[in-house]
Amino acid sequence: MPAVETAGLTKRFGDVVALDDLTCSVPEGELFGLLGPNGSGKTTTIEILTGQRTPTAGTASVLGHDPVAEPLAVRRDVGILPEREDPPSFLTPREYLQFVGDVRDVRDVDDRIEEWARKLEFRGILDTLAGDLSEGERQRVMLSQTFVHEPDLVFIDEPLVNLDPMMQEEVKRILEAYCEAGNTLFLSTHFMAVAEELCTRVGIIADGRLVAERDPRTLEEGALLETFVSEVEGAEAPAGQPVEVGNE
């Protein structure tokens, strides 16, 4: 059973089509990357798949649950890291992660907090108010809340944002190890290097449409960028010009 499966997923906001007939399948254990320019529909896709938004049309299945009908079951089983969200300013990282553990019903949360604080090197700020932390420190706390309940599937919107180069490498290793253990990662990014280096498969999305899928490991250096540019420019071509969708 695929970890994520969608068929004809569409979302309209008034006249704007944010997601247009998205059909894709992500098998268990895959590190799938959704690559697209700003405003292409990446965040909307993740929000629909995690039950945070209702699609206008189409169906989806996440770990066997329908995110429209069973949003709480989906949110229970997955981890979510949104692109722009900080831990609450007036809680410490320890308190915030305890809070997440409480709402997710995690039993040994204090041990897991220590473990993640060690992994992402923020033990020294565990008891500092989050409002006083740097952006990079906040991102490390947010990454921890994504994994603290040990989910089988994680949705991450831009994982490396605000992290220093050393921490970026550390996070990449953690994400790879997570998938090697049989878990699934659905990653959204507009950074080509992140997709090329991490993902086992990349879907290119433009103007709400999935316009291509590639395995970056089988491509020559620079080929993903070339595909991205040509597919995105094709998607943005004037109406009437057909766009070739490459599903390899």
Binding site: E95, D127, T128, L129, D132
Partner: peptide
């Protein structure tokens, strides 16, 4: 930088009806 020494979050949860 404000550091919080006591575990107030857990302390509050000991009050009746107060969850996370």
């Amino acid at each position: 930088t404000r550091r919080i020494r006591t575990d107030r979050y857990r302390t509050l949860q000991r009050l009746p009806g107060v969850d996370g």
